[in-house]
Amino acid sequence: MDFPDLPPANKRLGQNFLIDPNIVRKIVALAEVTQETQALEIGPGRGILTEALCKAAGQVTAVEIDPRLHAYLAGRQAEFPNLTLVLGDALIYSFAELPVGTVVVANLPYYISTPLLFRLLEHRDRIPRMVLMLQNEVADRLAAKPGTSDYGVLSVMTQYAADITKAFRVSAQCFRPRPEVGSAVVLLRTKERRELNREEEPKFAALVKAAFAHRRKTLVNSLRDEGYDQAQVTEGLVSLNLPPSTRAEVLALDQFMRLTRAIASRY
């Protein structure tokens, strides 16, 4: 079924418009939106989720990069008196200006989902929870456990900042045009308490990235190849009661944090 009176999808921007009202209701319910909620929607598209958010939330800000869709929604502004429309790129949008307590709800374009997620998590002090539609494969990586093939940098870094629930999968039939990959909705509840301090966090991020840079190698060798001192890494693993043959994918989040501190203490 086509919608000739609506702006068509822009393939370059990875647009797949949600058309299923049941999925919309599930997303809004999962986000726990109330009349006290300040909501941020990224990529409102044709507005099916925007409309539901405006009915449920006190205030909604929607950031749309496509001028055609922004103009279309602006033409419906009278329907949504509590909506602030922004024409802009979410990858450079100033999340630092969001009111504390803002809930993010979005059907994210898959090609920018990972960098955008990291940007949002940088501002988690303002965002208590996010409900995101993602490629199913990315959702699996977010929630992956140590020792699995999906476990990697995205898993560790996201789980450091938030508690993750893969809520439900969404059929390709719920979109127009239909995407070629599966989709899923995830709930992220950001963590109020930071386990690492401001000096330790960038060291942790660098270590995790380096640890998974060469997945087939041991952690010692992968970190050595990324510029870490082999003896210091080995000593750090010993302090965690881990053998030198350990690979990155078996370390749990708390072990990566402890290894960061152990190596940093030797510099």
Rank of each mutant, 00 (worst) to 15 (best):
D125C: 05
I42C: 06
S113V: 05
L73G: 07
T114P: 06
R141V: 10
E79V: 05
E41T: 12
R119M: 01
A52P: 10
L117D: 01
V104G: 12
K145A: 14
K55Q: 14
R129E: 02
A139I: 14
Q135M: 04
L142K: 03
Q77M: 11
H123A: 14
Q59F: 15
N107K: 02
V60A: 07
T114D: 03
A139P: 08
L40G: 05
R119G: 10
L85W: 00
P44I: 01
F118G: 02
L98V: 02
R46V: 01
V138W: 13
H70R: 02
L108F: 13
D66W: 00
D125Q: 09
Q135T: 03
K55S: 08
L53A: 01
K145L: 13
V104N: 00
E122S: 12
I48H: 07
F80S: 08
L108D: 12
G43I: 06
F118N: 10
F95R: 14
L121H: 09
G43Y: 03
R46A: 00
V60W: 10
I42T: 12
R119C: 05
A39F: 02
A56H: 10
A39Q: 08
P81C: 08
P128I: 01
L40F: 12
Y93T: 09
A74P: 14
F118H: 00
N82T: 04
V63G: 04
L120R: 04
Q135A: 01
P67F: 07
L83E: 05
M133W: 15
I92Y: 15
N136W: 11
N107V: 05
R124G: 14
N136M: 09
L98I: 08
M133Q: 09
L83D: 06
L108S: 02
L132K: 06
A39L: 01
C54H: 03
T102C: 03
S113E: 12
Q77Y: 13
T102W: 04
A143T: 03
V60K: 05
T37V: 03
R76P: 15
D140W: 15
Q38D: 15
Q77R: 09
N82I: 02
F118L: 07
E51P: 14
L116F: 15
